[in-house]
């Protein structure tokens, strides 16, 4: 077998299937349960706030339509809310990036070892992005439910009829948007740490002191 023949035969043979990457990522999250939980808490809070504001806004509009109040009455508070949402999302995003960077540093040797076993840079990137996606999705789902619930409870204190007049499909739509925002946010926040992990030289696995 010549070297070139080997190379062409192999090109497609180094791989990390998504199912395996997902399994490894889930296990990494599980074994660091509390740490993952704290990271997730940031997303939960950010998305809960987003969902609360969005659902409240939607309920508000429903009542305004019912009572015939002009819809643009609260334009001033609307701008403030957008500002607050942006800040809270930024904070959760930075929180994810920070937590992921810590996770990369902590797993320096693990990453180097994987590379010695033949992992390509993007295998490592993939693992970290999967982790972030799982965290982001779970956290956003929880956050959206909590935020939506809070919005309904606070609306019920003012209008007893909220459950009968609300458009459930519109609420669901708003919650789905909140979850999507959270998921995208955590993946985007993890891109830089994941790339840093991917670039790690394998030689460091040999001798990094822990």
């Amino acid at each position: 077998m010549s070297a070139t023949a080997q190379k062409t035969g192999i090109s497609r043979q180094i791989r990390l299937p998504n199912s395996e990457a997902a399994k490894i990522a889930l296990r990494s999250l599980k074994i660091r349960f509390w740490r993952s939980g704290i990271t997730m808490a940031g997303i939960v809070l950010g998305i809960a706030f987003l969902a609360y504001v969005m659902v409240s806004g939607q309920l508000e509009r429903t009542f305004q339509l019912q009572e015939g109040v002009p819809v643009d009455a609260g334009a001033q508070s609307h701008a403030t809310q957008i500002w607050l949402i942006a800040i809270s999302l930024l904070v959760s995003g930075v929180g994810i990036t920070n937590a992921m960077l810590m996770s990369v540093t902590e797993r320096y040797r693990e990453i180097g070892t994987m590379k010695c076993l033949g992992a390509l840079d993007w295998f490592v990137v993939k693992l970290f992005l999967f982790e972030a996606a799982f965290l982001g999705f779970a956290g956003s789902l929880l956050g959206a439910i909590l935020g939506g619930l809070a919005a309904f409870l606070s609306a019920m204190t003012q209008h007893k009829s909220v459950l009968s007049v609300v458009s459930w499909s519109a609420t669901l739509e708003v919650l789905v948007i909140a979850v999507a925002v959270g998921g995208v946010l955590s993946v985007v926040g993890a891109i830089y740490p994941a790339r840093r992990a991917g670039k790690m030289p394998p030689a460091d696995a040999m001798r990094t002191e822990m």
Binding site: K7, Q13, I14, K115, G118, L120, D121, P202
Partner: peptide
């Protein structure tokens, strides 16, 4: 290249 090195390490 990087790909071939990874293959070398793997196999």
């Amino acid at each position: 290249d990087a790909y071939e090195l990874a293959w070398l390490r793997c196999r």
